[in-house]
């Protein structure tokens, strides 16, 4: 399921990332790679703040929907 379905405070592992090369590369350089443990810190109507690798990244809903867990 997409990351957007995770509730605030929950943690999951990334299983797949969809989208074109540029999108996936942009996510990868911020640490979004398959197998990575991510945590939803805050959920603002589908726009998420994600904690991973000790940093926080804000993702728009359309971007978060490309990350499968």
């Amino acid at each position: 399921m997409p990351l957007t379905l995770l509730k605030a405070g929950e943690t999951a592992r990334i299983t797949r990332i969809t989208g074109n090369d540029a999108t996936r590369a942009r996510l990868a350089e911020l640490g979004f790679v398959v197998g990575e443990l991510v945590q939803v810190i805050s959920d603002l109507g589908g726009n998420l703040i994600i904690g991973l690798k000790g940093s926080r990244v804000a993702l728009g809903r359309d971007m978060a929907a490309r990350i499968m867990i």
């Binding site: 911020l30 726009n47 940093s55 926080r56 990244v57 804000a58 993702l59 728009g60 971007m63």
Partner: peptide
Amino acid sequence: APFVMELPS
């Protein structure tokens, strides 16, 4: 451009 932004602590 989809919204992606690192948030500093």
